[in-house]
Amino acid sequence: MASSAILFDSSKCTACKGCQVACKTWNQDKFEKTANSGSNQNPPALSPLTRTIIRFNETDVDDTNKIIWTFLKDSCRHCVTPPCEAYANEVCNVSDAVRITDYGAVVYTANSAKVKDLGDACPYGVPKQEKPGAPYVKCTMCFDRISNGLKPACVTACPPNALEFGPRDEIIKLAKERLAKIKDRYPDAHLHDDYEDVSVIYLLTHKNETYQNLVCADHGKIRTVSRRDFLKQIKLARRITNMLNV
C-alpha cells in the first residue's frame, strides 16, 4: 500500500472548523470545557482531547487598513521519518510505542505511555497525554477509515475542499499544481519547506510568520524555529539527528 498524504490548501480554508468537529466525532473524543479568550480559536491548543484545531492569526499590514487573517489546520504532520519514533526507540528505549502504518500514518500504541516527554521530540508539539504515564494522543490520519477505503474524517467533512487526501506522490504533485495556480494572486504562496519530510502538506498563501510560525507547542508558547533547527536542538539530539539525517 502506497504512502498517503493530506493536502491542506490554505487558499480554500474558510475556518469553519468542520474538520475539528468531524475529528472529534469520528474519534469519539470527549469535549473540552472552554472559555473564550478573545479569539475564534477554540479549544486554544491541541490537547489529549483535541487532535486537530484551526489556528487563527491576524497580521496588520503597515498602515494601509488591510490585514492578513490566516487559518491553519494544526495536527500531526505524519513525518516520513518521525523523530517521535526515533526518540521513543533510541532515547527512551521503548519499542513499539510509535508505529508507521502501511499508509504512512504515524500512530501511537499503548506502549507510548512508557515514553517520557514524547512531546519534546516533536517539532510541532503534537503528542499530548492526559497525565504522565498515560498513552499519547494525536491524529491517526484516520487509519481505521483509510484502511477501509474511506478518506480521513476531516477531509470528508471539509466544505470548500481545502483538504485533499490521496497517495503521497500524487498529493505532492497536486500541491505543486495548486501552488502554480495561486501564485499570481498570492505572491508569497509556498509549500511549507518541510513538505518533503511529512505527509501533511501545507500550501500556504502568505509568509510563514503570518501562521503563528507554524510550530505550535503549547498555547501561548509558540516555537519559532524550523523543523531542521528544532531537531538539531533537542535533548540527546545527536543520536536522533544522525538517524534522521538532519
Binding site: K17, Q20, V21, K24, T25, F31, E32, K33, T34, A35, N36, S37, G38, S39, N40, N42, P43
Partner: peptide
C-alpha cells in the same frame, strides 16, 4: 457540547482603537 466547545461564550468584537479608548483588553 461539541459546538459549545468551539464558541463557548458570546463575543463583542471591537477595534483596537476603540479598545484603547475604553481601556478594554482582549478577553475582558
Amino acid at each position: 457540547p461539541q459546538l459549545i466547545e468551539l464558541q463557548p461564550q458570546n463575543i463583542c468584537e471591537i477595534s483596537k482603537e476603540l479598545a484603547k479608548e475604553k481601556g478594554i483588553k482582549n478577553g475582558d
